[in-house]
Design a protein around this nucleic acid. Structure first.
Lengths: 194, 194
DNA sequence: CCTAATGATTGCTTATTGCAACCGGTTAAT
DNA sequence: ATTAACCGGTTGCAATAAGCAATCATTAGG
């Protein structure tokens, strides 16, 4: 990748590529940015992946970043068209849809891990918001694989490994987050009292 | 990361965070997307990182994706303000500027590696455009570290390791790309000749 | 019956992107 | 000396995208 180079020949290929496929270029970086490189698509996938949000209203009302409904609808449509997300009827309500990550979507886990690691190192995040990034980074590819297996169970109906017991990766990340919160809350209490 | 959860307490924190810092939320994923999650910033960094483009005109005219000059100027300004890129005078011309990646920018290498790996697996890239993604993915963190060291030499004036000889990582990726091109060109020739 | 839930859609305003021409100054070529 | 190329942008305008808040018809629960 990048990847795309600067030779005359590639300029020619670029023209043909754009005509044939509608893409700015055939570079994997560029193609990925075209698919998920807007301000909202990765947020939607994140909420599905880590927050277990699978319904429109959930994604809309529990969005920390306050996504607008037209943007959410548009992004879900695009992600579904791209094959990163799938949509099915939910049996609990005639109008209710359940959105699921596909294998293509699940394999964004390493991308999220690296984005999170970079962000938590270089941007003004708080401890409780960076703990999960740290754990994913420390866990490395074995932890990502385990997380992806968990997601295949939850989102694609893959049979869980019968040898696997205990909380899944998302739950463990959540527990670590809550532990930091609890520590901060008790620290805050002693500040107030002390 | 992701991280950001859905508790009442976090809703409160979110409000304070937004007031204090101007961010949608303090989640590392969201913060990273706010910084580099538009359609063009990662392309600019990619061209600096992998194409060794360091000047405005180079970035403008050798952009495979045909970036517009106002967008390029804006993105360079933003990346510089964010500390991902630095700008200095180039001694070869009074008006000429040279843009360099900072440590913060260089440490985006793993993000690019993962984005490239995902894109080359799931999106319609060609073989020659995905070979470098494959190599970076296969090389893993040791290869990324080596690449980052190379970038620190090229962009930050770090002294090269005297024990290191031979082509740097970017050159090796480029050579692999050219080898695929050469193979395709000879394959094409035999097609033409029958 | 009324209220809540459902996944959107809509009308409008604001912001961003993209195109292509342009700018004043500096350096190189003729 | 004149002309051409280089330099990093800036500009005016049209097209597109994002954001806000209200709205919609249908479905389910009390």
């Amino acid at each position: 990748m990048a990847y795309c180079n600067w030779f005359f020949l590639e300029k020619t290929l670029n023209t043909k590529n754009e005509v044939a496929t509608g893409h700015r270029s055939g570079c994997p970086i560029n193609l990925t940015v075209e698919v998920v490189g807007d301000k909202w698509s990765l947020i939607v996938v994140r909420d599905m992946m880590f927050g277990n949000k699978r319904h429109f209203r959930d994604l809309l009302t529990h969005s920390q970043e306050k996504i607008a409904s037209n943007i959410l609808a548009d992004r879900l449509r695009r992600l579904t068209a791209e094959g990163i997300v799938s949509k099915a009827d939910d049996p609990s309500h005639k109008q209710k849809a359940i959105y699921s990550l596909t294998e293509k979507g699940i394999e964004l886990v390493p991308v999220f891990a690296m984005i999170g690691a970079w962000g938590s190192k270089w941007l003004p995040v708080s401890e409780e918001l960076s703990i999960r990034a740290r754990l994913l980074e420390e866990g490395g590819p074995p932890l990502w694989e385990e997380f992806m297996d968990d997601l295949r169970v939850a989102h694609m109906g893959v049979m869980p490994d019968p040898k696997k017991t205990g909380p899944d990766v998302r739950e463990r990340l959540q527990a670590a987050y809550e532990a930091v919160l609890a520590r901060q809350a008790s620290g805050r209490a002693s500040e107030v009292t002390g």
